[in-house]
Amino acid sequence: MKPARVMLVDDTPTRSALLEQALLDQGYLVVCRLESAQGLIKNVEIHQPDIIIMDLESPDRDTLENMTILNQHNPKPVIMFSGEGDSAIISQAVQAGVSAYVVDGLNPNRVKAILDVAIARFREYQALRKELKNTRDQLADRKVIDKAKGLLMKAKDLDEEQAYHAMRKMAMDQSKPLVEIAHNILSVLELLTP
């Protein structure tokens, strides 16, 4: 059996690189990776993919949809993967942000296998992004807290331990996160300091 030819359209290169590697590992052929639908139709003609995987949140989806049966000049009909009666997989795909277009009737089982890989990678990427954001937020919080602590030390002539302690107490008394207390201190002290 010839390996299925996959085309990826995704404006997030990190994600599509992840997906490409995963597909290659499973023995599929990634014939083309595009960041937008610019030149999409031409690339479909050149690379002859069996399936196109596209980021659901790309505004270019409507352009791709036009390559459906409406386009009578296109010898290869492109249809959206509909998986007859298998709406669970479609729902999963939509949730994960994946859309798939099948060219010229690729076997539904093979479509599903490819789609499963794509869904898994898109989810993984979502989780990665979330983790990265958490780390960044924590770092940013750390900076704000340190800055507030510094200003408080200067303003109230406290040592580091005392300043930190005072902030912790305020946070507990007002049942607010420490970072919010730090923001409040910053806004007040920055107002008072010329």
Binding site: L56, E57, S58, P59, D60, R61, D62, L64, E65, M80, S87, I90, V94, S99
Partner: peptide, 11 residues
């Protein structure tokens, strides 16, 4: 971002 998304998400 697209009419296709509107349709699929409603479906």
């Amino acid at each position: 971002v697209s009419w296709s998304n509107i349709r699929d998400k409603v479906i």
